[in-house]
Design a protein around this nucleic acid. Structure first.
Lengths: 145, 145
DNA sequence: TTCTAAGCTTAGAATCATTATAATTTCATT
DNA sequence: AATGAAATTATAATGATTCTAAGCTTAGAA
């Protein structure tokens, strides 16, 4: 899936964000790699296409995009900020074994208790962790030996 | 509310954790300050009672307690690990204005979608953020001026 | 096409949260 | 009281993130 540069540029321009080459490439990366990458993953990957890319630029750009609500900042674990181009509320499951992050549908509003009635909620996150089916399957195979 | 040192010592001993003075005081702090404190908050507060307390000890102790499931590690935002003595699943709401964290009841099990059927879930976290009623009230008062 | 001012990027320093280390102290048992 | 294991300590080290100042890029005006 190739992200249209044009639509990215338009999206940024609509929010008064200068669509510099670096910013466009960072967004393109997020669209094409919806695996909740870390700054380091984004930086390392794009370094090959933009050899002079600075890590500070990646941090700066992600902060700008987060402020514009174009990306969502995930704090599933400390010391590991991740980014998600899908901004609609959904759950994240992190496998403790392989580290992979899975999305899952979540109807958060259905179980919010009345306690938060008088709160203005601007962001909702649901994080689960445990073992994914792939790693569970591996464990089962290990057991049978 | 004064936490019984005896029950803390017993709780640690039951899990084969040496109930050293520092560990007991850290747990006591968490029981008496259920405000999801950070390491720095715990360290600063206890420094007055244990002048030689080392920050590394606080980190070590919290990690040991987390592994023993006596405390829960919260990653509501990056660069801000917090700790909770209440280990049953409940939600956390962080006010973007005052920074306070509120607990709220959450029936997470009721809405886990079929997508996670084959996953082994070991931990569930629900984090919301926004503005709390106190800060909303202040904002309203500001508006009326 | 050139100029301009504002904003962006860069490279590396700085900051900060957290972990590692080795020496010392404390703990629980004998 | 002695002992060995574990914990604490003080500080260095690590790694994520932010800051900084200089230079570059951008978009639009001239």
């Amino acid at each position: 899936m190739m992200a249209a540069i044009d639509s990215i540029v338009n999206e940024l321009a609509r929010r008064n964000i200068t669509p510099s080459h670096q910013r466009v490439m960072i967004m393109k990366y997020l669209v094409e790699n919806q695996c909740h990458p870390t700054v380091d993953q984004i930086f390392s990957a794009l370094r090959q296409q933009i050899p002079t890319l600075s890590k500070a630029t990646v941090y700066n750009t992600l902060n700008v995009l987060a402020e514009a609500q174009l990306v969502r900042v995930l704090s599933i674990e400390d010391n590991e900020t991740r980014y998600d181009i899908t901004t609609e509320t959904h759950g994240h499951f992190k496998c403790s074994s392989c580290g992979r992050i899975y999305n899952f549908a979540v109807d958060v509003d259905r179980f919010v208790s009345g306690e938060l009635r008088d709160f203005r909620i601007t962001e909702k996150n649901v994080y689960f962790s445990g073992i994914c089916p792939t790693c569970l399957g591996k464990a089962e195979k290990e057991k049978r030996r």
